[in-house]
């Protein structure tokens, strides 16, 4: 009898193993986060109550205004890039998911900082676009530069690149992903790239514009092309 019982247990284990757990949870946006009141670990947040592993103080609940906005409207459309669940690090070293950028117009480009050929011109294109946007609209736009070289482009390196290029203002964000997260995101943008040597890539030069819902509305291809259409598409979707 016992033998039967354990055989059943074994079968159940096998079945449990075979069925995949990748039933993705629907996009849930955290409304409350917990954080050490002394900020021992910088901006790091936890999603459950507890105590800080460094100073042992109780974590306090924080409620970021932007997160409240998200929770009011957490529907994510089918074509939205906010469906991607990969984790990224910005130039300040903070972990984030793309959906935390929800609510702003996004202007995105993929680059790598050791690039000597096309990237400086792509970066210049991004700055030219930014310069054409009226100042009062800038708060509703995020210019995002995503590294295709996550091994070399650490948050520190992205930060110094930002400072060097005078792109350290609020509206600029630099992201480091994982190798597979970057590959997936490039495929969402239809960006092709390949590593030519450990520090060199060839890649498509595409600037993509997303509305506040994360839906692709415009792509500009090529270097030094006329930015006019891109700018008008940005202005059209930005309040």
């Amino acid at each position: 009898m016992k033998l039967l019982k354990y055989s059943i247990l074994l079968i159940i284990t096998v079945i449990a193993f075979q069925s995949c757990k990748s039933e993705k949870k629907e996009a849930i946006v955290m409304v409350t986060d917990y954080q050490c009141p002394m900020l021992c670990e910088g901006e790091k947040t936890y999603d459950t109550e507890g105590s800080c592993p460094v100073c042992k103080m109780d974590l306090k609940m924080i409620n970021d205004g932007s997160e409240k906005v998200l929770s009011q409207n957490n529907e994510i459309s089918e074509a939205s890039i906010f469906n991607l669940s990969s984790t990224w690090h910005n130039e300040e070293g903070e972990a984030l998911q793309l959906r935390s950028l929800k609510g702003k117009t996004l202007v995105m480009v993929m680059i790598y900082t050791s690039c000597k050929a096309a990237c400086p011109r792509l970066v210049a294109d991004m700055r030219n676009i930014e310069a054409e946007i009226p100042k009062d609209k800038l708060k509703n736009i995020e210019f995002v530069l995503i590294s295709i070289d996550p091994k070399i482009d650490t948050p520190q390196r992205l930060k110094s690149f930002a400072i060097e290029n005078e792109m350290d203002d609020r509206q600029w964000t630099f992201l480091q992903g994982t190798v597979s997260g970057v590959r997936e995101f490039a495929n969402v943008l239809s960006v092709k790239y390949k590593e030519i040597s450990p520090i060199d890539f060839s890649h498509s030069n595409i600037i993509s514009v997303f509305n506040a819902e994360g839906e692709l509305i415009h792509q500009q291809e090529g270097l030094g092309v006329n930015n006019k259409e891109t700018i008008s598409s940005i202005l059209k979707v930005t309040p």
Binding site: A118, K192, Y193, K194, S202, H203, S204, N205, I206, E221, G222, L223
Partner: peptide
């Protein structure tokens, strides 16, 4: 990198 687009931009 061999698409129509890539001819002009990569």
């Amino acid at each position: 990198l061999i698409t129509g687009e890539s001819r002009k931009d990569v």
